[in-house]
Simulated assay, not measured.
Amino acid sequence: MPETSVITVLVVDDQPLAREGNALALDSAPGIRVIGEAADGREAIEQATRLDPDIILMDVRMPGINGIHATRGIVDGGLRSRVIVLTTFDLDEYAFGALRAGASAFLVKTATHQELVDAVRVVARGDAIVTPRITRQLIDAYTGRDQPAQGGQGLSVLSPRERDVFNAIALGLSNGEISQALHLSPATVKTHINRIFAKLGVRDRVQAVILAHQLGLTIGGQVN
């Protein structure tokens, strides 16, 4: 999304104080506007469909339809919103379940308001970083090592340069780091990433690193 665009956010949490506090913190940040709040997963899906926010800040543990099922409903519904889930612990099985359901990132509830704002901005521009530690935990917990690789023809659909960029994504590099490592302009990196995601049929970096693992790429190496 353009740098000058206002990032619209839907805040979802069953605890009113937490929901209102996060909404206030985000709405007070330059370039971010909270356009709705929801108290449970069902309401989150309804609000996401009606409001079409850029980002959904989703509490993962809620009664009724929890954050995992709500995230899956939003992603399977073809909505463009990107989901950031909030959880108590960074290795919480609920958080990984939400990532597998299609969430783009997660934060622990102890995150500061500034960290929350930063995360919204990072995910909104499609530059989320998936660290090797979190990637390994996600893969070990939720993907079997004998799973068939997804993504059609695998990496054969990518050009050599797109393959380089895909390898960098698998290592957890941000767009800026890929730009420096491969001596590409930021705009060129974004173009390559958009083409890679389209060719491989992945939604974001989380799905990309899982696919990289399934295709046999090593997580945590170096970019040539």
Rank of each mutant, 00 (worst) to 15 (best):
P63T: 13
G64V: 08
I65T: 15
N66Y: 06
G67P: 06
A70R: 09
A70W: 09
A70E: 05
T71A: 05
T71L: 04
R72T: 11
I74M: 06
V75R: 05
V75P: 07
V75I: 15
V75K: 12
D76I: 04
D76P: 00
G77Y: 04
L79K: 11
L79E: 11
R80E: 11
R80W: 01
S81P: 07
R82C: 05
V83N: 02
I84Y: 03
V85T: 15
V85I: 11
V85A: 14
V85P: 05
L86T: 12
T87S: 10
T88R: 08
F89L: 14
D90Y: 03
D90M: 01
L91I: 11
D92W: 00
E93C: 04
Y94N: 15
A95W: 00
F96P: 13
G97P: 13
G97I: 14
G97E: 10
G97D: 11
L99V: 12
G102V: 10
G102P: 13
G102L: 06
A103H: 08
S104M: 02
F106P: 02
L107H: 03
K109E: 09
T110Y: 00
A111M: 06
A111T: 13
A111I: 12
H113K: 02
Q114V: 11
Q114I: 10
E115T: 03
L116P: 10
L116I: 12
V117E: 03
D118W: 01
V120I: 11
R121S: 01
R121Y: 01
V122D: 03
V123F: 01
V123G: 04
A124D: 01
R125W: 01
R125Q: 09
G126Q: 10
D127N: 12
D127F: 05
D127R: 04
I129C: 09
I129T: 13
V130D: 01
T131F: 00
T131D: 09
P132E: 08
R133K: 05
R133P: 08
T135K: 02
T135R: 07
Q137Y: 10
L138C: 14
L138K: 09
D140T: 15
D140A: 15
A141W: 02
A141D: 12
A141Y: 04
Y142V: 10
Y142W: 03
Y142G: 10
Y142D: 07
T143K: 07
T143P: 04
G144V: 11
R145Y: 04
P148A: 13
A149T: 12
Q150A: 15
G151T: 10
G151A: 05
G152V: 12
Q153Y: 00
G154F: 01
L155G: 11
L155V: 08
V157H: 04
V157T: 15
L158K: 12
L158Y: 01
S159D: 13
P160N: 05
P160Y: 01
R161F: 04
R161E: 14
E162G: 15
E162P: 07
R163V: 06
V165P: 13
V165G: 09
N167G: 09
A168S: 14
I169D: 09
L171W: 02
G172P: 04
L173H: 14
G176S: 10
E177W: 02
I178T: 08
I178W: 00
Q180L: 13
A181H: 13
S185Q: 15
P186C: 07
P186T: 06
A187P: 03
A187L: 12
V189K: 07
V189E: 03
V189A: 09
